[in-house]
Design a protein around this nucleic acid. Sequence first.
DNA 1: CTGAATCCGTTAAGATACTG
DNA 2: CAGTATCTTAACGGATTCAG
Lengths: 127, 127
Amino acid sequence: MSKPIFKRNSDHLPDDCRPGFDMLYVLGDKWTVPVLGALRRDGRARFSDIEKALSISQRMLTLTLKTLERDGLVRREVFASVPPRVEYELTERGRSLMNSLHELTGWGFANHEGVEESRRRFDAGSV
Amino acid sequence: MSKPIFKRNSDHLPDDCRPGFDMLYVLGDKWTVPVLGALRRDGRARFSDIEKALSISQRMLTLTLKTLERDGLVRREVFASVPPRVEYELTERGRSLMNSLHELTGWGFANHEGVEESRRRFDAGSV
DNA sequence: CTGAATCCGTTAAGATACTG
DNA sequence: CAGTATCTTAACGGATTCAG
């Protein structure tokens, strides 16, 4: 009965490359990567712990986690205790996704200096 | 004298991983990947050709190309002919960035079926 | 008390259209 | 083809309310 939380998707891409790039538009929002990163680092974490670690709003953390759970990247577990407790952890799929980012982040670390330089030059006096 | 076109960036990430993930927030907007993909496939292309190939609005294509030029991923060349002609092509940096996406797109093709299944299950009866 | 849901606000992405 | 000027929609944040 639910539906996608965020509207950004890969519908504007040609059919044959849509599945390959679909996840890029999930990762490309503001909080998906930080949340996945926190869960990978800490293993299992409570909602409130992630919230404080990232200084993310409660609302955005809820929406981001729900999207990740929907995609099967994060597993959610509720404990009917008092006070209530909700814990999250990466699924195997979530872990493999994070690993598949190594090549891209490697590019980032290797090229960010060149990109910054290019931006400075462009912003200074175009040409 | 110029400035970033799009406001999305990696400022919300911790300092030590910001350079690695910065480009993700460039690639994550709607038109960057399609434009880079078209240029990689066609080599060198005119503005109007890309426009028609992607059914992107003139405005968004201008903004996207300017951002890519600013980052040194695309080279812009103007021909003072009649009618005027402007051509674009990937730089070496742009090509290497596209190559660094292989791991992620590979993950996408390998996992999109599982993700879609997870989404269907979640949307059907949350639990 | 935690975390989800909801209302309301702001900002930016993106489309369309017109100008030069 | 670039610039500008709306317009619409969505992302995001803040605050409140509600349920367990």
